[in-house]
């Protein structure tokens, strides 16, 4: 299947039907002890000779949809993109928000059986938190890319046995919510004090595409630019709120955080809240109206006096 894909992509690149392939590849890296290791990372291929670099394995963690809204990739002609079923939801949100032109995309839908958890550049040796719920009893992802959504569906599963399951994010969430509010606040104070404001969470997020982020504005300066407690707290709450009803739970923000702040805890909470209150799931359907630009007459107002 991968071979068919490679042949097809080569043809498409030569004929000019697509301008670039954004996929997963491996590269050799130079280690301090003199050994060479292979690291799976995004590759950007625009020559047919390079197509053989494409791989599909459990280390294909990064959500490549992020690149679609970056300025540099807008001029590359039609883009062929390797998309995991969960990443496809991000494409739906971008379509819903009219940020991408589906016609400019050639979606390579992958069939997934879970990816590895990666945190602070280290493979943690178990499945990513988001995958545990998604996998069915046979160890295959229950989410699949259907031929309607993807231009080509790759049914080959990556090799390798099932790695140990890590902790499910919702069990973390449950435990966290049981803590008294002062403890929760202290926990986040503790976490946000570490924040460097490198904005890796923002850059890696497929939903954070604003040309002018509110965090960069200085007139008016709603969010303090300085990485002190107030500024960091405000930044993270605002980031979470801007993603409410839009976050698809890909976990990129938490993966890329160089200080290991558990951002998915907040995001998952908001995903659950949105589903609980309004029955809304982001990225389910590219045609649905965005959560905050619609309302129902009988929305919950028990909290209003």
């Amino acid at each position: 299947m991968m071979d068919d894909l490679k042949t097809r992509l080569k043809e498409m690149l030569t004929s000019g039907a697509i301008g670039m392939v954004i996929g997963y590849g491996q590269k050799e890296i130079y280690m301090a002890d003199g050994s060479r290791e292979y690291r799976t990372c995004p590759v950007f291929l625009s020559r047919d000779t390079e197509i053989d670099r494409l791989v599909w394995n459990r280390h294909c963690v990064q959500n490549l949809v992020t690149y679609l809204t970056k300025e540099e990739y807008k001029e590359s002609g039609k883009i062929a993109l390797m998309v995991k079923p969960c990443d496809l939801k991000a494409i739906h949100v971008l379509e819903q928000e009219k940020q991408i032109d589906r016609k400019r995309l050639f979606i390579i839908g992958l069939t997934c059986k879970g990816v590895m958890a990666e945190k602070m550049g280290i493979d943690e040796g178990h499945l990513a938190g988001k995958c545990i719920k998604c996998l069915d009893s046979s160890g295959k992802s229950s989410a699949v890319c259907t031929p309607d959504e993807a231009d080509i569906v790759i049914e080959t599963l990556p090799d390798g046995d099932m790695p140990p399951k890590g902790k499910d994010i919702s069990s973390d969430l449950e435990g966290f919510e049981k803590m008294p509010s002062e403890k929760r606040w202290a926990f986040w104070q503790n976490q946000f004090l570490k924040c460097l404001r490198c904005y890796a969470c923002r850059s890696a997020c497929p939903m954070c595409y604003c040309e002018q982020c509110i965090c960069d504005m200085s007139r008016p300066q709603w969010i303090d630019k300085s990485p002190h407690l107030k500024g960091n707290f405000l930044f993270h709450i605002v980031r979470a709120f801007h993603l409410t009803g839009r976050c698809v739970g890909c976990g990129e923000c938490e993966r890329v955080c160089p200080m290991g702040i558990p951002l998915m805890l907040i995001n998952q909470k908001m995903i659950d809240t949105v589903k609980d209150l309004y029955g809304y799931e982001s990225g389910k359907d590219p045609e649905q109206a965005p959560l905050l630009s619609q309302f129902k007459m009988d929305d919950d107002q028990s909290f209003i006096k």
Partner: peptide, 22 residues
């Protein structure tokens, strides 16, 4: 106010989750 109601419901849940006193 209908739109506002959604925003407030979500904001209240968010900051209370972070540990703000309700």
């Amino acid at each position: 106010n209908y739109f506002a109601r959604r925003k407030f419901a979500l904001l209240k849940r968010l900051i209370e989750f972070c540990g703000m006193d309700e």
